[in-house]
Design a protein around this nucleic acid. Sequence first.
DNA 1: AATCTTATCGATAATCATTATCATTATCAT
DNA 2: ATGATAATGATAATGATTATCGATAAGATT
Lengths: 148, 148
Amino acid sequence: MSGDERSILEGYLKSRGLKMTKARDTVLAAFLGLESHVSADAVYEAARLIDPGIGQATVFRTIKLLADSGLAREACRDEGARRYEHAYNHAHHDHLRCVQCGAVVEFVDPDIERAQEAVYQRFGFKSSGHRLELFGLCPQCSSSGGQP
Amino acid sequence: MSGDERSILEGYLKSRGLKMTKARDTVLAAFLGLESHVSADAVYEAARLIDPGIGQATVFRTIKLLADSGLAREACRDEGARRYEHAYNHAHHDHLRCVQCGAVVEFVDPDIERAQEAVYQRFGFKSSGHRLELFGLCPQCSSSGGQP
DNA sequence: AATCTTATCGATAATCATTATCATTATCAT
DNA sequence: ATGATAATGATAATGATTATCGATAAGATT
């Protein structure tokens, strides 16, 4: 897991005539050090711990590069800020979110995936990805009456 | 279909001690006169045709009321502005969007719905809704090579 | 119908996440 | 090392939405 991500980013940059820089290395490290579903702002905070002088715009720009290179993916865009999650060595999955406490469960359901493929075929579309979010009450919140 | 929506809105407002106003009537009429997946700005434009003096803030506020009263629902929140669709007499459905031309197909798939219920059970969640968007290339765009 | 309370109005400023601008600096192929 | 060019960080700008506020209108009460 060591420098794989770095190599991927370097390869992506090189293939487009872009440059690997200290700032991009910082943002990558910050992002890799965080867990799933981080906002650009959270990455910015983490990056400033590594390099206090880094600019916010650079973080936004670099996150976009991470997404383009396949290292990050947009997880959701619900409340205000976008959130990103690791995409390398982190297989596709969908999200189940508790509307009360915000807990997020990641899951993959073969039946859903299969049924989605059938929908693509039904309408003659070529699949290029999907976003599924299930909302509900988690066991804890529903046992505590829903209104804590 | 006549004044049902108006009655619903009135009932909702009354139940909360809120008032039915000319402006809210205007926004409701504007929204009902538009087809699916409208932005707040589109509703604002339509409302100004009915009452040129209406304020943008009022449109935003009223759309929120429409959503709370069950007349509108947030369809997606992808590119910048939120989009709303009719929720009254307009059953639940999911969206299949062409990433090339933006065409949107609304569909309902019983298999997907059923499989989602199974996921809720698997994790002990109580269902309260979901959002599913499938992305892909529509038949026209994929036959024209994908890059028009 | 007159009145009184209170929600709502429209205009405008404020907010928040994200992008664009731009002069300076760093990267990297040569 | 050096030169072409991409990247940086600070800051302004954008776009959607929300908050503020004095003036107004809704609707219950008299």
